[in-house]
Design a protein around this nucleic acid. Sequence first.
RNA 1: GGGUAGGUAGCGAAGCGGUCAAACGCAGGUGACUGUAAAUCACCCGGCUCUAUGCCUUCAGAGGUUCGAAUCCUCUCCUGCCCA
Length: 391
Amino acid sequence: MVESFSYMVYFDILKKDINSRARNGILHTAHGNVETPVFLPIGTRGSVKTVTNQELKFWGAQMILANTYHLWQRPGDALIYKAGGLHGFMNWQGPIFTDSGGFQVYSLAKTRKVMEAGVLFQFDMDGRQEILSPEKSIQIQANLGSDTCLILDDFPGYPFEHSRSQASIELTGRWAERAIKEHLRIKEFGEPINPGQKLWGIVQGASFEDLRAASAKQMTALGFEGFAIGGVAVGEPHEDMMRAVEFSQAELPESAPKHLLGVGTPYDIIQAVARGIDSFDCVIPTREARHGRLYISAKDEEGREGYTTLDIRLEKFKEDFTPLDNTCDCYACLTHNKAYIRHLFAVDEPLGIRLATMHNLRFYLNFMKKIRTAIEYDFFGKMLSEYKQVE
RNA sequence: GGGUAGGUAGCGAAGCGGUCAAACGCAGGUGACUGUAAAUCACCCGGCUCUAUGCCUUCAGAGGUUCGAAUCCUCUCCUGCCCA
């Protein structure tokens, strides 16, 4: 877009790890700074399920992710625009990242049709059909006023096939050009709610080196202000995901901020940080919390720090009056014990999933803080080599 | 003492002559969940094993009828309710 554009304008790299591509940075947005590497809790429909903005902020959430497709369907971007954009509507003062609806092209594959013009969706709420085009996605995101928005993209599920993935990067590339034009048109002639909104490109190409490289080069050439790596965490092995990250990031500007879409487990995250990823979003901590799965710190036989999970619904916790995680400083751990939280799940008390959600989010947010600290004080290499899921 | 309704897998509860190891719910268990159609979903839940259109032991107990019984008959035990 702008030839002289410098990522330094809004992304500062403060520190680089000596032994890996991990780095600490600050992303400057119209709604404040974000320390990276960062994890974005997901608030698909304008709410991080069961939790308040005040709580999120208190626990250390810096930026949240919302969804174009779902907010478009209900309550509609026109209404959100009137409310002062998503920031005003949900009264979240911090930065917001919006997904383009591209993920729904994948997750709602049964009820949509991909065409060159865009994607024809049949809304699950009322059955009406609408086309989400690359331009439409940008218009909606402009009305939402997110700080970082994404191009509409297309990607296949797993297992990967070269020809299908090639078609996806080509289509995504054509859509990317249309998205940029629309983004610039709105900035120049429209009345965007957030003039500081940045549009990021998305690299696709599954785990194929040539496709990831081609896609990354194309996105870079198009001059995006940041890059997301997509099409991962669709069922492929962890190693394939890391290959996708490596192949993509190898052809992206080092100084640009990079987001890994939809990832992941703590292990996926730390491995991706080591490969140069600056931000993440994932439903794991929130969704799994509602399903009773809690992430807690744990050490292996050798005393190395990692994490494990537990299912709080199990009968074995019926009389366990100890905290979920005695190294955790979340409200749930400081105030309640396993037996009580298990009871709340057993009788379907909403407080159960709320406590579980706050714990998992706090766990993830603390985990990212540990990563930032490790990079800052030069022990990221040690942390990286030791941190994994222990049974 | 008389009458009446019942006794089914851990619990509740269907079934009322074959297609019944027995619906369904709960409890219990296992597994999923990665840019949220997910406070959800799948599977297991008498025993054995080659996990199967397989075998064994079950529907209070005993004994019958029948080719065949959780289902019908007789007696016994137990429980709720009503009458004395």
